[in-house]
Nucleic acid binder design. Structure first.
Lengths: 196, 196
DNA sequence: TATGACTACTCACTTTCTTGAGTATCATGG
DNA sequence: CCATGATACTCAAGAAAGTGAGTAGTCATA
C-alpha cells in the first residue's frame, strides 16, 4: 500500500491534478515510484475520501476542468507515521535479470538484444535525471544545493535514480562484453562436453 | 507473470524442491527475483500442469518426502520465447525512496533511522553476494570465470545485485551526511522563509 | 474536414502479491 | 519428555497492482 504514500509525497511540494501525477508516474519522472493513470485516479479518490488530500476544482477555458490536490494535515501525519515505520528491504524485481539468469540455456543474441535495449533506456533516463538535477539546483553547485537548497527530498531520490541507471548502464555493457567474448570462443578448457 | 519465468530460470542449473526455491527466493539469495513460499508452490503446480516443469517424488528417510522439479523442453521453449520478447523497463520501487522524497516535510531523525537500517541491510547483502561470487568462481580470477566459467547467468545477475547494493550503500551514506549537515545548520541564506 | 495528439478523467475486470493459519514428521537439546 | 526448530507443504482470503476500453472536448496539422 505504498502507492498511497507515493502520491502523498508527490503532492508535497506543489498541488497537482491527477493528470499531472499520471504524467509524472508514467514517464518515470517520478523516479521513486511508477503507476498507471487509472491507479492514480483511484488512489486520489480514496485519499480524498479518507481526508488525506483535498481537491479543488479549477475551471479552465479551452480544455476540460481539472481538480488540483493538496496534502492535508491528516495526510502529513500519515506520511510521518509511514516514515517512522521500518521500510521493507527493497528488492530488485526485473524481467531482464530473469532473462540473464537463464543465460546458459537461452539464445545469446536475443539476450544481447535485450541488454542493448536496456542500455539505451538507461542512458535516456540517466540524461533525464541529470537534466532534472541541473534544473533543481539552478546555478549553484551540488554541494551548495545539498546543504541549503530546497526541496531536498526530490533531489536525493533523483540522485539515487541516476546512480541506479548508471549501474544499469555499466552492468549492461559489461554483460554484453562477456557474452560476446564467450560467443567468439564458445568452449574452452573446463567447459567441454556438456552443459544443459 | 514473470514469477513463472523466474522459477524456470532458478530450476535451470539444478533440480530443486519447492522448499529449496522458497528459501532462495525468500532470503533474497535469488537476487533476481523475490517471492513468498506460497507463491512458489502455487506457481510450481501451475507450471507442472502446463508441462513446463516435471516433478519427481523423492522419498527421504527421517524427514518428509519432497518433490524435485526440472525444466522440460516445453519449459525451455517458454523461456526462450520470454527472452526473445522485449523486457519491460525496470523501475525502482522502493518504500525508502518514497520516504526520502518526503524529506522536506517529515522528521529527519526518523528518516536517518530508515536510511541507517537500509545501509545495514545493504552491507549484509553485499557481503552475501561477494561470498556467492567467490564460491561460484572457485579459485579462478573473475576475468577467467567470466570468459570460461559456468553457469554464467547466475554470476552476472549476482554482479548486478552486488552493484545495486553498493549503490544503496553509497547513496544511503551520502543522504545521511546531507540530512545531518542540514540539521546542524537548519536555515541559511536563501532558505529563509519560503522554499522551492 | 478528418486525423491524430493532448488534456482530463472513469468504469470494469483480472492478475499478482501478501498474509495468516494450519498439517505432519523428525531431530536436537535441556 | 517436552519444547523448539527444521523440513516440506497446503488452503483460504484479502489487498495491491495492472490492463483494456471508453468518454469528451480542444487544438494543430495536413
Amino acid at each position: 500500500m505504498t502507492l498511497r504514500h507515493a502520491v502523498l509525497a508527490a503532492l508535497l511540494d506543489e498541488e497537482r491534478s491527477g493528470y499531472q501525477l499520471a504524467k509524472a508516474f508514467d514517464m518515470g519522472v517520478a523516479n521513486f515510484w511508477y503507476a498507471k493513470p487509472q491507479q492514480l485516479y483511484a488512489e486520489l479518490t480514496r485519499l480524498e475520501q479518507g481526508g488525506l488530500v483535498s481537491g479543488r476544482e479549477v475551471v479552465q477555458a479551452g480544455r476540460p476542468n481539472k481538480r488540483l490536490f493538496t496534502v492535508t494535515d491528516t495526510g502529513l501525519a500519515e506520511l510521518e507515521e509511514f516514515t517512522a515505520a521500518a521500510a521493507k528491504p527493497s528488492v530488485l524485481r526485473d524481467d531482464l535479470m530473469v532473462k540473464v539468469q537463464a543465460a546458459d540455456s537461452v539464445d545469446t543474441d536475443h539476450l544481447i538484444a535485450r541488454l542493448t535495449e536496456r542500455i539505451g533506456f538507461a542512458r535516456t533516463k540517466a540524461e533525464l535525471f541529470e537534466h532534472l538535477l541541473r534544473t533543481m539546483r539552478g546555478d549553484r553547485s551540488e554541494e551548495d544545493f545539498l546543504l541549503h537548497g530546497r526541496p531536498i527530498g526530490p533531489y536525493l531520490t533523483c540522485l539515487r535514480g541516476l546512480a541506479f541507471e548508471r549501474g544499469n548502464l555499466d552492468w549492461g555493457e559489461r554483460a554484453i562484453a562477456v557474452l560476446r567474448a564467450r560467443q567468439d570462443r564458445p568452449k574452452t578448457r573446463d567447459a567441454e562436453g556438456d552443459d544443459r
